[in-house]
């Protein structure tokens, strides 16, 4: 089996992985982005960054009213990796994702216990402003939901409200290029974003998220509303992005998880069943339930 498994996975992963790895490993992870440096200095003593997790979730419980949706999740999410959250509907993966940038507290009647650290800082600490959390931990939603404004405005707005002092035009271009949308829209920046196709709208939403220069990008089934061609474009974009960002993605699509993610976490009934490097989780899962799920025997 071990030999089989490596050849099985080989055709899927290599193009992005081999292209990305040299550059990602060339420099120490944490010093790549100035944000990380400063927060490390503020939060903890600067350590050797090699394996320091970007996000650290510790015994996280979450309730919608009386519904205990997350029951003690503990996991670490590594910087500059794509982490996929998989599991059957209602297992809590979207809830977990939305805890990571405090989106859930916009819903009334919810309760959260436990801690989530981003670069060692507790994002649920009393003196932490949720607005600042969301600026550092951006989010792309399931349904493409651009603002009913121009393409340009969609990208520029987030930067403007956060007091961006640089050149907005350059930022818009850079963000659109990062989201692999620039070439398709550069001549129509000032037309309505709602005229774009669904796949373009979703990449615009990614560009919009990148424009506020977050550290972490959360994606909630970003390709589930898209056709296969648009999906593959969004997937390429995601693979491209992990150079600069830490990405956590919720997906129902296990092929997608195995194509784009480095680590995969399997959730079931509000608990983390297993978290491992993606190729291992899909080929040599530790738990029977994980195996049953990834092989399609339930869920």
């Amino acid at each position: 089996m071990p030999t089989n498994e490596s050849t099985e996975d080989a055709p899927r992963t290599p193009p992005p992985a081999s292209a990305e790895e040299p550059s990602a490993n060339g420099r120490p992870d944490a010093s790549e982005r100035p944000d990380t440096e400063s927060s490390a200095a503020g939060g903890e003593a600067p350590t050797e960054p090699a394996m320091k997790p970007k996000l650290n979730i510790n015994d996280l419980h979450f309730w919608y009213g009386d519904n205990h949706a997350l029951q003690g999740i503990t996991m670490d999410i590594q910087p500059h990796k794509v982490t996929a959250l998989i599991g059957p509907s209602g297992c809590g993966k979207s809830t977990l994702l939305r805890c990571l940038n405090r989106m859930n507290e916009l819903i009334q009647g919810t309760t959260l216990e436990g801690t989530i650290l981003v670069d060692g800082q507790d994002i649920y600490a009393e003196n932490t402003d949720p607005v600042m959390v969301r600026r550092r931990v951006g989010m792309v939603f399931q349904k493409p939901n651009p603002f009913p404004k121009t393409i340009y405005k969609n990208v520029a707005w987030g930067a403007e409200i956060n007091g961006y002092t640089g050149d907005i035009d350059a930022l818009v271009e850079r963000s659109l290029r990062q989201a692999a949308l620039w070439d398709e829209v550069k001549d129509r920046l000032h037309t309505n974003a709602l005229d774009l196709s669904g796949g373009q709208q979703q990449r615009l939403c990614i560009a919009r998220t990148l424009a506020v220069q977050p550290d972490v990008v959360l994606m909630d089934e970003p390709a589930s509303a898209l056709d296969p061609i648009a999906t593959s474009k969004v997937e390429e974009t995601i693979t491209e992005l992990k150079k600069d960002y830490t990405i956590v993605i919720v997906t129902h699509n296990m092929q997608q998880a195995s194509r784009i993610s480095d680590e995969t976490a399997f959730l079931y009934m509000g608990r983390l069943i297993e978290m491992n490097p993606t190729d291992q989780l899909f080929t040599r899962p530790e738990k029977d339930r994980t195996e049953a799920y990834v092989t399609g025997r339930f869920g």
């Binding site: 916009l106 989010m139 939901n145």
Partner: peptide, 20 residues
């Protein structure tokens, strides 16, 4: 979705209301 995505960009409540 409009409200949520605006909040997710680090907007305050008033910015979400005023702009969108």
């Amino acid at each position: 979705g409009i409200r949520e995505s605006a909040y997710a960009l680090g907007a305050t409540r008033w910015q979400v209301i005023y702009s969108h």
